[in-house]
């Protein structure tokens, strides 16, 4: 980096601006992921006649849309320097709480709202343990993973709640289409775009970035570090609850075992997307591309008749490659 150049507005000449822009895009995580996705896309279009069809595209999008909502929350939480292993259980909790309330006669919309509220409350309590007592995010959320999952079993008494009586208006969220595009995908796109925009531009999320980058410096900038951490935790849990309600509408059933293991996929997506587990760094867009890539790979493997047993291994390798590249690049700085 040229340090002697004095500070001038709009530094940089037009000459070579275009290749530089491309180089910059590729240096950014999002650009890199887009490139990989594009290569896979082109390759798969030739490899399989079923790949480049609307039906397949829709299936791929559907496969990660709902979890993608949680990825947005997880990315923000990772930026602040936290992590939440309980999101899978939180999704399930919102689902079974809402399902149970609906079955005892509550309006499904109100029940859904209370389901999201329940996960938000769980996130708040978890955040209090982290910011108030000073426990680590990892171990606290591990405890909450057990706690919330246990609650799911208690609420359902261990059996799936059949919710086929949900009114069509409610089922529309999870199963309906607008001009042929599933509502689930639309909701996901809105959350992702708004989330990405806000993380880049809102002062609230700028404070999240400050806290994640350097907690001490944030404190010396007059930022209430604990409050920022607490509400980021609540946000992540609430988005997980929201995703759970969408799943409920989509599946028409609330299963106490739903979402087991999905936290790993969600965290992996955020990290592949460029979020650093040491905080201060991460991109919602990158994380969305990350989970998109994971889904694309899975779907490609199915189309190519590769054994399903390889899926987890390949995902593990992708994650390992992403963090290794990250580490090497940062070390050379």
């Amino acid at each position: 980096m040229d340090r002697d150049e004095t500070l001038t507005p709009g530094s940089g000449t037009l000459r070579g601006a275009v290749p530089r822009a491309v180089a910059r895009l590729l240096r950014m995580r999002e650009g890199m992921l887009l490139l990989i996705i594009a290569v896979l896309f082109v390759g798969m279009s030739f490899a399989s006649p079923h790949f480049l069809t609307w039906g397949n595209m829709r299936a791929i999008l559907m496969s990660f849309s709902t979890e993608g909502i949680v990825v947005v929350g997880m990315t923000i939480l990772i930026i602040v320097g936290g992590i939440d292993l309980s999101v899978g259980a939180a999704m399930c909790l919102a689902m079974v709480v809402a399902g149970k309330l609906f079955l005892v006669g509550m309006n499904p919309w109100l029940a859904g709202l209370i389901g999201v509220g329940a996960t938000g409350l769980a996130g708040f309590v978890m955040g209090l343990f982290v910011t108030g007592i000073g426990l680590g995010f990892f171990i606290t959320s591990l405890a909450f993973l057990g706690l919330l999952r246990g609650l799911c079993f208690i609420v359902t008494e261990g059996t799936p709640l059949s919710l086929f009586t949900l009114p069509p208006s409610f089922k529309f969220i999870g199963q309906g289409n607008v001009y042929g595009v599933p509502v689930v995908i639309l909701i996901f796109l809105v959350v992702a775009v708004v989330g990405d925009f806000l993380v880049r531009n809102a002062t609230v999320f700028r404070r999240v970035i400050y806290v994640g980058s350097n907690e001490n410096a944030a404190n010396y900038s007059g930022i209430n570090v604990r409050r920022v951490r607490l509400w980021t935790t609540v946000l992540c849990s609430s988005l997980a609850g929201f995703a759970g309600i969408i799943f409920m509408s989509r599946l028409g059933v609330a299963t106490p075992t739903f979402g087991i293991g999905s936290e790993l996929n969600i965290i992996a997506a955020a990290v592949i997307g460029g979020a650093s587990l040491s905080g201060g760094k991460g991109s919602v867009l990158g994380a969305i591309l990350g989970i998109g890539l994971l889904s694309l790979v899975t779907s490609s493997m199915i189309l190519l008749n590769i054994s399903i047993f390889w899926q987890e291994t390949i995902r593990g390798l992708i994650l390992l490659a992403a963090v290794s590249v990250d580490h090497l690049v940062n070390r050379h700085r």
Binding site: Y210, S213, A217
Partner: peptide
């Protein structure tokens, strides 16, 4: 340790 956000741009630091 306390005075700057090392991983963030100059502009972000000044506005913080």
């Amino acid at each position: 340790t306390n005075g700057s956000f090392q991983t963030l741009p100059i502009a972000f630091n000044i506005s913080s």
